[in-house]
Amino acid sequence: MSLDKSRNAMPQGSLDMLILRTLQLGSKHGYAIARHLHVASESFFQVEEGSLYPALHRLEQRGLVSSEWGPSEANRKAKYYTLTSAGKKALKEQTSAWYEMQQAITRIMNFQPAEM
């Protein structure tokens, strides 16, 4: 598959869903979340990694994730985020909405006008 890297901005509003999905796999600190998004997307998205933090703090304020300080892999202090039950519910809803939107877009792209 050929990809145009200049167009690899993340679709608006999808970052929260991708963070929640990443945390569904287990608690992670921000750096680990960034690495996961990088690896799982096969380096597709070109986003500044700092943009994760406003999103993480927003999700925490909404009660969708909780946080706790703990030792990192290198035994340094890092802040770990965990998906809450409200976050799991929100992820389910967002995933469902995303699939519906994806299908709607596919239908529009495949639409053929009736022949006269």
Binding site: Y31, G50, Y53
Partner: peptide, 9 residues
């Protein structure tokens, strides 16, 4: 802690 968190990354 916000600063510490960002600096860790």
């Amino acid at each position: 802690t916000v600063r510490e968190e960002l600096m860790y990354h």
